[in-house]
Computed example of a mutant assay.
Amino acid sequence: MIYVGLTGWGDHDSLYELEASKKNKLAIYASYFPTVEVDSSFYAVQPLKNAQKWVEETPASFQFIVKAYQGMTGHQRGEIPFDSKKEMFQAFKDSLTPYIEAGKLAMVLFQFPPWFDCKKENVQYLRWCRQEMGDIPSALEFRHQSWFWPAYYERTLQFMEQEQWIHSICDEPQAGEGSIPIVLKTTRKDKVLVRFHGRNIHGWQKRTDVNWREVRYLYRYNEEELREWVNRLKMLQNECRNVYVVFNNNSGGDAADNGKELIELMKIEYENLAPRQLDLF
């Protein structure tokens, strides 16, 4: 199955503009898409009540991709409120309980920063992370090109396969070492992840701007660019039972429209979405 979704559910105004009530955005979101990426977990380990609420607001078949906490991937923006990595990982795993018990956890996404390059100590850390996660399905996304340099390309994929990492394939600007190419390879038979970050090459690494994080994801895929992915996704589906596709080009409100357009291009008709209630009057 191909699951198409977006990162987060709060910033997609085009989904909610026709709704009489915009209070429960996740429920409205789940009437369009069967999966979502939880980004709030990157900034703080979420309390159980949040995950429980989100689980209850979505259909039984809905799937969550939960982003790993920033301290787990070495971003460390601000103080990390844990005494050890072991404690940090345990707190994060505990926060996943509602998703797991409801059968709604698609995977945890480990997105590593551009300075996390291909070297021995980083490979060892990835192996430790995978061991800590146990049987929790976990996806791995790189931001440093060295992991897919010719000298390491096959070994990186082989390592991911041996360690049972789900491959996170990226469509992103090709802007030197701080970006990775599209690598259309699956590393597990059950799941693969594809993330669309946009192709704003000028904004991708322009960190001098105050709002650079908003600028870097400012991009709208055109139909031709999306059509490029139709056959790619079908190919991945032939190699893997479940293909998860997430649009992260949120800055200009383009992700929702691009997600819906891809669903139409692939002629996907989802069953068991949340009921859609429109009331203009």
Results as ranks from 00 to 15, higher is better:
residue 220 R to C: 01
residue 98 P to Q: 10
residue 117 D to Q: 05
residue 175 A to Q: 11
residue 191 K to D: 07
residue 87 E to L: 03
residue 42 F to C: 04
residue 7 T to Q: 13
residue 167 H to V: 01
residue 44 A to T: 13
residue 18 L to I: 02
residue 141 E to A: 05
residue 30 A to F: 07
residue 62 F to M: 10
residue 261 E to K: 15
residue 238 N to A: 11
residue 123 V to M: 13
residue 174 Q to Y: 01
residue 119 K to Y: 01
residue 48 L to I: 15
residue 207 R to W: 09
residue 153 Y to D: 03
residue 239 E to W: 08
residue 277 Q to Y: 12
residue 52 Q to R: 15
residue 260 K to G: 12
residue 199 R to S: 00
residue 119 K to C: 08
residue 251 S to A: 15
residue 41 S to R: 09
residue 141 E to R: 09
residue 31 S to T: 08
residue 169 I to P: 04
residue 75 H to S: 08
residue 156 T to G: 08
residue 83 D to T: 12
residue 276 R to P: 00
residue 52 Q to Y: 00
residue 134 G to S: 12
residue 137 P to K: 11
residue 252 G to L: 05
residue 114 P to L: 07
residue 118 C to F: 04
residue 87 E to W: 00
residue 190 D to M: 03
residue 47 P to D: 08
residue 45 V to T: 13
residue 92 F to L: 08
residue 5 G to M: 08
residue 38 V to T: 11
residue 49 K to I: 10
residue 112 F to D: 07
residue 99 Y to N: 10
residue 71 G to H: 03
residue 142 F to Q: 11
residue 61 S to R: 12
residue 244 Y to R: 05
residue 35 T to R: 06
residue 77 R to I: 04
residue 113 P to W: 04
residue 129 C to L: 15
residue 200 N to C: 01
residue 270 Y to Q: 12
residue 4 V to A: 07
residue 257 D to P: 00
residue 198 G to N: 06
residue 129 C to V: 14
residue 70 Q to P: 02
residue 32 Y to C: 05
residue 45 V to R: 11
residue 230 V to L: 05
residue 90 Q to T: 14
residue 30 A to D: 11
residue 248 N to L: 09
residue 247 F to H: 03
residue 261 E to R: 15
residue 157 L to I: 12
residue 105 L to E: 09
residue 184 L to P: 01
residue 137 P to G: 09
residue 209 D to H: 14
residue 188 R to H: 01
residue 181 P to I: 06
residue 7 T to E: 02
residue 210 V to P: 01
residue 259 G to N: 02
residue 146 S to W: 04
residue 85 K to A: 11
residue 187 T to Y: 03
residue 185 K to D: 14
residue 226 L to F: 02
residue 253 G to R: 06
residue 59 P to I: 10
residue 92 F to I: 11
residue 29 Y to F: 13
residue 151 A to S: 13
residue 77 R to D: 04
residue 60 A to P: 01
residue 254 D to A: 13
residue 253 G to S: 06
residue 132 E to Y: 00
residue 276 R to Y: 02
residue 223 E to D: 15
residue 131 Q to P: 00
residue 78 G to I: 09
residue 270 Y to P: 12
residue 125 Y to G: 02
residue 46 Q to D: 02
residue 194 V to M: 10
residue 97 T to V: 09
residue 241 R to E: 15
residue 12 H to F: 02
residue 186 T to V: 15
residue 153 Y to A: 01
residue 93 K to P: 03
residue 182 I to K: 14
residue 162 Q to L: 06
residue 250 N to P: 00
residue 126 L to A: 11
residue 203 G to N: 03
residue 227 R to H: 02
residue 141 E to M: 06
residue 119 K to I: 07
residue 74 G to M: 09
residue 101 E to K: 15
residue 97 T to H: 11
residue 241 R to K: 15
residue 117 D to W: 03
residue 11 D to K: 13
residue 65 I to W: 00
residue 117 D to A: 10
